[in-house]
Amino acid sequence: MAASLKLDYAAATDEQLVSLAKGGDADAFEELVHRHRDKIYARAMIMMRNEVEAIDLSQEAWVKAWQRIHQFQGESSFATWATRIVINLCLDQIRRQKRTRAESIEQMEEETGGVERHMPVVEANPTEGLETEDVRRRIDEALGKLTEAHRTVVVLHEFEGLEYKEIARRVGISIGTVMSRLFYARRRLATLLQNLRKERSE
């Protein structure tokens, strides 16, 4: 009887599932996890560059999402809200691991030295002729070649759409450092994409 009254979770909207999950419906939450798990995992993977860590942090993000679902008021989409959770977990993990310490010399040299004005020219469509998935893969590889500190600001700015001051607050650095890191990261990415074009022309 109860089963016949059950909602078709697969057909429900995120808003309906969130509402049910707030009432303690674990099946509704499971559907939300299923729908968005790849996005959450991908964000963790882009940040951490490690499959085991990405799985662990994405699962932890879902635990936090379940625990805090009452705090979700729908100001953004559920996926965006859940993504913010995993991003925060990644930033915490990075801080714990103190990986940035190992990169500090490189960063200091860059951030205290003069910023070169020149940047490799990125053509209007540098990835023209490539399959979308191939471009995604190549950009992912390029992101993997950035230092963790540089990758973090790129992810927060380009994919999370955060403003400089919000990135500064989340990462615990000055706005000036955010701007420097973003510029160096972009210059490096531009170089890597330029190499991609060279590879194609060879």
Binding site: D38, Q59, N125, V135, R136
Partner: peptide, 30 residues
């Protein structure tokens, strides 16, 4: 140009585990 290219090609990764296994892990942690 760089911003447009990067934003429009956000890398995608798929969870390597099945739906059931992944959810069982999440449920256990909850």
């Amino acid at each position: 140009s760089l911003g447009e290219v990067v934003r429009s090609h956000e890398p995608s990764h798929r969870v390597p585990d099945s739906r059931e296994f992944y959810w069982s892990q999440v449920r256990r942690r909850i």
